[in-house]
Nucleic acid binder design. Structure first.
Lengths: 121, 121
DNA sequence: GACTAAATCACCCTAAAGGATGAGGAAAAA
DNA sequence: TTTTTCCTCATCCTTTAGGGTGATTTAGTC
């Protein structure tokens, strides 16, 4: 293994250099460890597969995320730079595809199916 | 620093021992890194928030649960065997106490504060 | 007993949400 | 190129949600 080879080569160095080297190696493992920790404990992103199965478009997922964050129709429209009518159309289409009748149900179903980013944490 | 002292002491060891030592040190940093990564990226476990601090009554928590399950005002009323007006009053009071303006925000906040039963698990 | 909080219900009104439908343009797929 | 999907916006209409206020009853507290 390359790293161990380098460690072996290090035996020719002076004492101060050895300590610095050890620190660098430790730092590398530390960074790698943090990366591993983040990889396995960080919240998962949206499941595009399920979204496709329900026929939800990219825009609709976007709207769904906003609904889950408590935005009103008008706020969704402002956020996406579209008219209120457009936002309402998207929302209505979402209800149809999710087979629900209200936004709270849509958000609930979206959470269950992991269609949206989970709540903060 | 203790670890660096140990690394220094290591210079008296034989080559094979050096490699093993390096692996151990790396492993320690790795574990520490994973711990760090988990600490900052893992979803924190929900501490049981004191509903009393928000002044939410038992009945209001009940209503909140129903809102989180996507019920309409009328359905909440039916579920609790009260009038629609009563349900609306409870809901309005909830909004005031949670300092929100819409039901989706109330549900969101209730989830964040673990005031209601989590969706799953 | 008086005080307080909680739960209940009512009426008024405005704002927001939702249903149905049509339609035009852009982009991708056939 | 034709078709289809998506995004966009619109109008009309109904239903639901929400804000404000006041009132009654009951249960627990001081």
């Amino acid at each position: 293994m390359i790293i161990l080879e380098v460690i072996h080569y290090k035996t020719m160095m002076r004492d101060v250099e050895i300590e610095v080297f050890g620190g660098v190696i430790g730092l590398l493992f530390l960074v790698f460890g943090i990366w591993l920790g983040a990889k396995f404990f960080k919240k998962p992103s949206i499941d595009k597969y399920d979204a496709d199965k329900l026929g939800l478009s990219k825009r609709e997922i976007e709207v769904l995320e906003l609904l889950a964050n408590g935005y009103s129709n008008q706020e969704v429209a402002d956020k996406l730079f579209v008219s209120l009518n457009t936002a309402k159309t998207h929302i209505s289409n979402i209800y149809s595809k999710l087979n629900v009748k209200r936004r709270t149900q849509a958000v609930q179903k979206a959470r269950d199916l992991a269609l949206i980013t989970p709540p903060k944490g």
